[in-house]
Design a protein around this nucleic acid. Structure first.
Lengths: 357, 357
DNA sequence: TGGCATAATGTACGCGTGTACATTGTTGGA
DNA sequence: TCCAACAATGTACACGCGTACATTATGCCA
């Protein structure tokens, strides 16, 4: 591999000039630029990213942290692959690398070391919850003032920007749609409340019920872990409460699909006996039988915005997007008190009506 | 961030000694080791991975290349997430980082630059095909003698190790199972033949038919792109040929699920009217209605082995595993002539019998 | 005790780049 | 013509670490 020095010699200039040409900095005579470019091309010279990063003290990589237990898929892969795609597109375009990092859920994770060792310049955190160890790990990041962004999880903590979606509004719209259709007793198959997105959906659900003079009935609320299997397993409990149910809201499509299958096995027809609404508008949702009424969430954009957020932070433009962001995040959370912070982005959701409800 | 020099001063030793302690190389007096460790702990010193990599000329990252078109999911995410998990586990344990790289399918991709710029020490290539541009890109790697491994795609080219599965045997077993059950006219919904795994499945299918005195009938062969939607779309063509069909083999579960849904929409009962067998044993396969008879493929292990392969190459143990590998890859391909190379690993597949056939 | 092998540590430099600062070339106006 | 301002380029060094080689300490045996 050719080095800068050889290029400089061949082009008859100093190494500094080569460096300036390669990085496009400083004033350079056009003729010099051409000479250097020609020499570089002739020698097949390319900037050594490692040395360059070392000299600048930056790795050029952004860490993307995923929860992971071997052989267990905790979340919908649709969810992550959409977000990852959005992140990947933005980072690639900006010339950054995407370093995939697996984290043990509910365990402490030493984000700070990743920065100290210069393995990453920033982190994007996916699938985080507010369980103590996880939150503490993330807060340590914020305390150090390191650039990062949490995706789809609000911590409402200074220095910890979050990009998410307005799940309260999404769940509200879904619940309201059922109520407006004349269904009264709406069950809710939610995910763990340790995810703020679960909590937000609950809030939307509660709010819609409140507007129709109801309060949530714990007896018709169920919990899964966002996997299809957990939905299918929940179908047992749901079936036991069937007499108390006119409809069912699920916190994601996979659980909805699992629940529908579980219910069908027990002879419950969807939507005839029990209308069901999913959440995510995953590609599966339009292909099931019946096609799922669901809530669309712009996960791809979520990934893009999260990446944009840390890149902006890295380039010093402290908060270029924040005008838009705050406007988008204007929804106010009434009940649980944890309003979105000023840093937060809340993307809009949209009810997609199909046949399951 | 503390530097090596500060640690050396605090511990009262030279920088070289600190380096030796941190890397565990060379003879070190136990007392010295303790002193250094204590100083490092006190200062919160951690090795700067960037500087260390620079000095060694290695980034410490392995590139994992995925095909990607924004907003389009080409393959089953199950497939990739399993393989990625296997890769991630192995790399993490070995102290390597996983650099996720997106490639434009069917386009040229400059792998070699990734190495030249020291962005990666090796590459794992997923979802590759033998389309000209893709193959040329990969062959350039082999020509340069750079460490890499292709996952689930055989190129039978020197210097290009592949880790895959014995899809010929998998498809053979599935087809044979149908034939043994008395079904004669077996349709095949395959993926693009530009993937060797598709071609291998076809070979297994052909072989099983041959043993029962048949040769493949092009009229009952269909092609999808491994997505659920493509399976659903293929259902139209399959329906048109229904009179000529006793059974249907699909090249992955997603297409099988899509096909079953498409068939159901047309009033075709599975398995009563048309038994269907899927492929992959994805987590969805046990949750569909009916549960899919399918072929299990150890994708997680595939990822692990691919990662093992490049790591072994990097540490100079040129071919430690090859004894095992060759044994596993001993299956001989009779028809298409492209036998697995000596480098190749072929993992075993297994027929999983459920209710769709 | 001397000498030697080996353990343990220190010295010195290279890795390839970015960039502050110094130097030289150029232009335009007085 | 001379000088200031600025463009263009060169010089020199730091970045933090690995490691070859030199040096010093230690233990063992005669």
């Amino acid at each position: 591999m050719a080095t800068r020095r050889e290029v400089a010699e061949l082009a008859g200039v100093s190494e500094a000039t080569v460096s300036r040409v390669m990085n496009g900095v400083g004033p350079i005579k056009e003729e010099t630029r051409r000479k250097v470019a020609a020499a570089a091309a002739e020698l097949g010279y390319q900037l050594n990213a490692l040395a360059s990063g070392f000299a600048k003290g930056r790795s050029g990589n952004i860490g993307v942290v995923l929860p992971h237990v071997p052989k267990v898929r905790l979340f919908s892969t649709y969810y992550f692959s959409e977000i990852l795609s959005g992140i990947g597109d933005v980072l690639h375009q900006a010339g950054y690398g995407l370093l995939l990092l697996y984290r043990n859920p509910q365990a402490r994770y030493d984000y700070v070391s990743l920065y100290r060792t210069r393995r990453v310049d920033a982190c994007l955190i996916l699938g985080a919850s507010d369980l103590p160890e996880e939150a503490a790990s993330v807060f340590a990041l914020a305390d150090e003032g390191l650039p990062c962004c949490v995706v789809d999880q609000r911590y409402a903590r200074a220095g910890l920007p979050c990009v998410g979606a307005d799940h309260r509004a999404g769940a509200y719209a879904a619940t309201r749609y059922m109520l407006d259709a004349g269904h009264r007793r709406i069950g809710f198959l939610n995910g763990s409340p340790h995810y703020s997105n679960s909590a937000d959906r609950y809030e939307g659900y509660r709010q819609a019920l409140a507007e129709s003079g109801q309060s949530p009935d714990p007896a018709i609320q169920f919990e899964g872990n966002y996997s299809r299997k957990s939905g299918q397993e929940a179908a047992g409990a749901i079936f036991d409460r069937l007499a108390a149910l006119d409809g069912l809201l699920c916190a994601n499509d996979r659980m909805a699909i699992g629940a529908i299958q579980g219910l069908r096995e027990r002879g419950v027809a969807v939507p005839e006996r029990l209308p069901v609404i999913g959440y995510d508008n995953s590609d599966a949702s339009s292909l099931t039988d019946p096609p799922l009424t669901t809530v669309e969430v712009p996960f791809y954009e979520m990934g893009r915005l999260a990446a944009d957020s840390v890149l902006a932070r890295l380039s010093g433009e402290s908060r270029v997007l924040s005008g838009i962001e705050v406007a988008e995040g204007a929804a106010v959370y009434q009940a649980n008190g944890s309003k979105p912070a000023a840093d937060d982005v809340l993307l809009p959701t949209q009810l997609i009506i199909r046949r399951s409800c």
